[in-house]
């Protein structure tokens, strides 16, 4: 009986420690390169995200290969020539959420300060977004921009008319209490 009680307490304590963590493995990230010549859009539904409510830490990670384009050739160029996904297979962001009231209902505007790493180059970023609490869920949305130059993504002169220097990124994640 004693042992059973011990086990019970242990299980319970594990749950308590975990109670602060919200996560998902199918967050959606889209990006858009807009130029007068053409718009190039890609999306991934395989981004992972985790948010620890106890300390406000938040992290995202997306496999570069999981971005899909309307044309297979675009996807190949994206992976082979620009993102070099064989060498730098993932993009990650890690930061701390500021201005969040965990108990507040409804939409909250938040600022996340952290580091965005892609193509092997890290950049300190402050990214704005919204968070909505719905019971055991946090909905996180954000729109931000990434400058190719900031991450040493080289765009050759011949395609500067087709590929934007600043890429618009849209993120949507539904994080569940785990």
């Amino acid at each position: 009986m004693k042992q059973f009680l011990f086990l019970f307490t242990l299980c319970f304590s594990v749950t308590v420690v975990q109670a602060q963590r919200f996560s998902t493995r199918d967050a959606r990230i889209e990006f858009l390169s807009e130029t007068p010549v053409e718009d190039i859009q890609a999306e991934s539904n395989e981004a992972s995200a985790i948010f620890d409510m106890s300390n406000g830490q938040m992290a995202f990670q997306v496999p570069i290969l999981s971005f899909h384009f309307p044309k297979a050739l675009m996807e190949e160029h994206f992976n082979e020539n620009y993102m070099e996904s064989a060498r730098y297979p993932k993009a990650t962001f890690r930061g701390v959420v500021e201005g969040l009231d965990p108990n507040k209902e409804g939409e909250q505007f938040v600022t996340v300060k952290g580091t965005l790493e892609m193509h092997g180059v890290s950049k300190e970023r402050t990214i704005q977004g919204t968070m909505v609490r719905d019971g055991d869920w946090w909905m996180v949305e954000s729109q931000f921009e990434v400058a190719c130059e900031d991450h040493a993504i080289d765009i050759p002169k011949v395609v500067t008319e087709n590929i934007a220097e600043i890429i618009g990124v849209t993120l949507r994640a539904e994080l569940e209490l785990k």
Partner: peptide
């Protein structure tokens, strides 16, 4: 077993460990 399991969870103090756990095989392209 539970202790081991619990210990594993406690050790997950770094957020980034979460990403390593879910790594799935990726198709090699080009």
């Amino acid at each position: 077993l539970f202790l081991g399991f619990g210990g594993g969870l406690f050790a997950q103090d770094d957020l980034m460990d979460f990403f390593d756990d879910g790594a799935e095989p990726a198709v090699v392209t080009a």
